[in-house]
Amino acid sequence: MIPLTLYTTLGCHLCSQLEGLLGLLCREPVALDRVEISEDQALMARYGVRIPVLADGEGHELDRGFEASRLVAWLAEREWLDEEGWEALRRQWEGEEAPREVRGAQRRGGRRYLG
C-alpha cells in the first residue's frame, strides 16, 4: 500500500483528476489521506494556489500532479509507477485503446468513488 497525502479542497476538479490518474498509474493500491485546506489558514496560505498537492510519507511534494507527465516522473522516481498502466493511458489518449477501469474504484448511483 502506498501512503500519500492529498492537499485539496471541496469541489476541486483537478484533485479529482489527480485521484483518477493515481488509480491508473500506481502499481500498488494507494492509501490516500485527504487534507481539507480551507479549514486552516496556514494550509490555505501554503497550498491555496498550488492544489492539488500530493505528498509522500517523507514529505516530498508534487504540485500540479494532475499533469500526467509530472505525476509519472514523480511516481517513477519512487518506483511506484505501473509502466503498463502508463502505456495503456498513452494509447488511450492516442485513440488506440478503450479506457481502462480504475483499480479500487467503486460505482454507486452512476458515480465513481475512489477509496
Rank of each mutant, 00 (worst) to 15 (best):
Arg34Ala: 08
Leu25Tyr: 09
Ala76Met: 03
Tyr113Gln: 08
Arg46Ile: 01
Leu71Gly: 06
Arg107His: 10
Ile51Cys: 07
Val53Ala: 07
Pro29Cys: 06
Ile2His: 04
Ala42Thr: 14
Arg64Pro: 05
Arg50Gly: 08
Cys15Thr: 07
His60Lys: 08
Gly110His: 01
Gln106Val: 14
Glu61Val: 07
Pro3Arg: 06
Leu25Gln: 00
Glu79Gly: 12
Glu28Pro: 00
Glu94Val: 06
Glu58Pro: 09
Cys26Glu: 04
Ile51Asn: 02
Val35Leu: 07
Trp74Gln: 01
Gly65Asp: 07
Arg111Lys: 11
Arg34Leu: 06
Ala73Ile: 03
Pro52Val: 09
Arg108Tyr: 02
Glu36Trp: 09
Arg103Ala: 15
Arg27Met: 03
Pro99Val: 04
Gly11Gln: 00
Leu114Val: 10
Leu54Gly: 12
Ile2Thr: 08
Leu4Phe: 05
Arg91Glu: 15
Arg50His: 10
Val49Ala: 14
Trp86Arg: 15
Arg27Cys: 03
Arg100Gln: 15
Ala42Trp: 02
Glu61Lys: 02
Trp80Cys: 03
Glu19Trp: 03
Glu101Ser: 11
Gln92Met: 12
Glu28Tyr: 06
Ala42His: 12
Leu43Gly: 02
Glu39Met: 13
Thr9Arg: 13
Val72Gly: 05
Glu83Arg: 10
Pro3Lys: 13
Ser38Glu: 15
Ala98Ser: 10
Pro99Leu: 01
Pro29Ile: 00
Gly59Cys: 02
Ala98Pro: 09
Glu94Asp: 11
Leu75Met: 03
Arg91Gln: 15
Gln41His: 13
Met44Ser: 09
Leu81Lys: 00
Arg64Cys: 11
Gly57Trp: 03
Gly48Asn: 08
